[in-house]
Write a protein that binds this DNA or RNA. Structure first.
Lengths: 249, 249
DNA sequence: ATGCATTTGTTCGTATGTATG
DNA sequence: GCATACATACGAACAAATGCA
């Protein structure tokens, strides 16, 4: 490598001054990360590149990366590289969880994008959750949720057809809460949440701006109104490890 | 295929009798599945094989499989085949969740296998959860949980070293609850649970008897004693889709 | 990393039986 | 009887995903 292309941090290394080289490297990388030189989720240079950059052996770089990894600042993945840890969005499951509230609690700006709003025949799982017979008509809303413009959730919401005018309300309203309110459901709460995970389809990965080899977290939940009647069944998909689910009893 | 190797069900097909062939095929497969001829999680013959077996076109078999898939009886995966849906173990997160209770609630026989029981230095995540400084000594127990002999969980339990005699108690005792009781912690409850997912390592996949391309569900949880002091931090890994996590507020 | 075999997914075209008017 | 619409069934080819060597 050309001497002139070295970073400022690489020049600062002091040998035999009582501070191990790997500590100095770790500190330099820490500084570069917090300074934003390597953005969250971004990839650090390869170990070989860093070794050449700092003019040390690759083992020394690995020691530094191990330190950062233990501290949770970076995530090292075999065959892929080292990545700056992303800020995780904790999705706290509570009785009355609304998307916008969740995002705002993390000091980010919520926004959404309706992908589909159609009336379909309920499949077995959906019908079972809504307490309908298979094939019954339901309104389905597919929506991409974003935080500061970055996709963080992809949700399918199913509503029983007995809620007259809901589809029109959803077309007019930006939020589900408002649309339900427009058809007389002024309050609803989450009854049960089921969590699983799977590999995303190509389409899901593209929409959520995530690699295809990382799993989706999937929640299925049933919302009921004040009288206990089911008003919504939702299946939401979240990209790992950007989103985690948290349960506080 | 030799005429003699056809299954009984394939001979039962009646053409032009008012019941569509694909319905008859779906019904025959339904019967074979419920009769245990294709066990849960097992693979059905390929579409081509079934088509030859039933002496119909592959489209007709696909139609039948689509019906079973919609009903939730089978799961079809491109490039792999069609699989009989497995009975899912719902892991209900509650304040006082014990492994053996969970398994017994599903009418299965719980058992366990200790993989490691060692004293180690706490890494950042573990130390943070236990309220210790990084590097503090902790007791770590790694345990494989089985239901009717089938692996369903792989858990790492971390205990603060202040619990004197715990390691010996864990060596002697079959369950964590009993060991904690032996060192004076007669009651503990789950404080917070965090859920995420990732692809398993080769070792994890082997231990949990699962394919490497299917994600693990991972829970991290903190257990506190009656006084609110942290007595355990646990990281458990569950195979999807055999296990799902359920929150009931 | 690459190619290959296997398996499901999709899309053509064609033909036939059935219900309707 | 005839025209039409619809569901059913078959055949061929190719696309896409998976697993393996």
């Amino acid at each position: 490598m050309d001497e002139e292309t070295k970073t400022a941090s690489s020049r600062a290394l002091q040998r035999h001054d009582g501070v191990a080289l790997w500590r100095q490297i770790a500190q330099a990388l820490r500084g570069a990360i917090t300074a934003g030189r390597y953005p969250p989720g971004g990839r650090l240079p390869t170990e070989a590149a860093l070794a050449q950059d700092f003019a040390v052996n690759r083992h020394t770089v690995r020691r530094a990366l191990e330190d950062l990894s233990r501290a949770g600042l970076v995530r090292v993945e075999q065959g892929r590289g080292a990545f700056v840890a992303e800020d995780v969005l904790d999705y706290t499951v509570a009785s009355r969880t609304r998307f916008s509230e969740w995002i705002r609690r993390h000091n980010k700006e919520p926004s959404g994008q309706v992908l589909r709003l159609v009336e379909v025949a309920a499949e077995a799982v959906v019908a079972g959750a809504l307490g309908l017979r298979a094939g019954a008509r339901v309104v389905m809303l597919e929506r991409l949720g974003l935080a500061d413009g970055r996709p963080v959730s992809l949700a399918n919401h199913y509503f029983p057809a007995r809620l007259r005018g809901l589809r029109e309300a959803l077309e007019a309203s930006p939020t589900i809460t408002a649309a339900l309110s427009a058809v007389g459901v002024t309050d609803y709460r989450r009854q049960v949440t089921r969590v699983t995970a799977r590999i995303p389809t190509a389409e899901e990965a593209a929409l959520l701006a995530m690699p295809r080899n990382r799993p989706l977290l999937i929640t299925e939940n049933v919302n009921v109104d004040g009288a206990g009647a089911v008003v919504e069944f939702g299946i939401a998909r979240y990209p790992t490890p950007r989103v985690q689910i948290v349960f506080e009893p």
